[in-house]
Every structure is written in structure tokens, then in C-alpha cells.
């Protein structure tokens, strides 16, 4: 009983507090994790599981439209961040 509650809590967890982004505005937190996810995959390869931590964080912080736009920009080679 108690373990299933715990696993549910784990599944529902959101981005943890990040001391680099202490303000209400989390735009940069979203952006940093998006960039870090792609950097991580570039260095460690597409199947490296720990990289998905960044994905989880940016997915809970970023508006979906931003993510779609940025992924499009990466495909077209005109994303502003350095990956």
C-alpha cells in the first residue's frame, strides 16, 4: 500500500528547486534544461538514460509551443543556444 503511494508520488513529481533560478520567472530554468538535454545527448549518445532528467524538467517547466518551436529551430540549424 505505502509503496504504491510512494511510486505514485514519484510519477507526479515536478521540477525540483534549482538555486541558479530562485526567482518567480522560470524562463531561463526551462531554457537551460532544454539546452542541457541536447548537450547531454550529444556527449553521451541518444540512449543514455540520465539525460532524460533534463527532459523531464524542461517538459514540466516549458510551454509546449516553445519546445516545438525550439525543436524545429534545431532541425533547421538555427537554434540560438550552443549545443
Amino acid at each position: 500500500m505505502s509503496t504504491s503511494i510512494m511510486s505514485n508520488v514519484e510519477a507526479l513529481s515536478t521540477a525540483p528547486f534549482d538555486a541558479r533560478f530562485p526567482n518567480q520567472n522560470q524562463t531561463r530554468n526551462c531554457w537551460q534544461n532544454f539546452v542541457d538535454f541536447y548537450r547531454c545527448r550529444k556527449v553521451k549518445g541518444d540512449d543514455y538514460e540520465p539525460c532524460n532528467y533534463f527532459k523531464k524538467v524542461y517538459q514540466s517547466l516549458c510551454p509546449n509551443s516553445w519546445v516545438e518551436k525550439w525543436q524545429e529551430q534545431i532541425e533547421e540549424g538555427k537554434f540560438a543556444g550552443k549545443i
Binding site: 531554457w31 540560438a80 543556444g81 550552443k82
Partner: peptide
């Protein structure tokens, strides 16, 4: 800002 790639001078 993030539109500049969070860097100065901006990327590009």
C-alpha cells in the same frame, strides 16, 4: 535573453 542564446555577443 534566451532569444539571444543566453550569450553576449549573441550567437551568430
Amino acid at each position: 535573453s534566451i532569444e539571444l542564446g543566453s550569450s553576449w555577443p549573441p550567437s551568430g
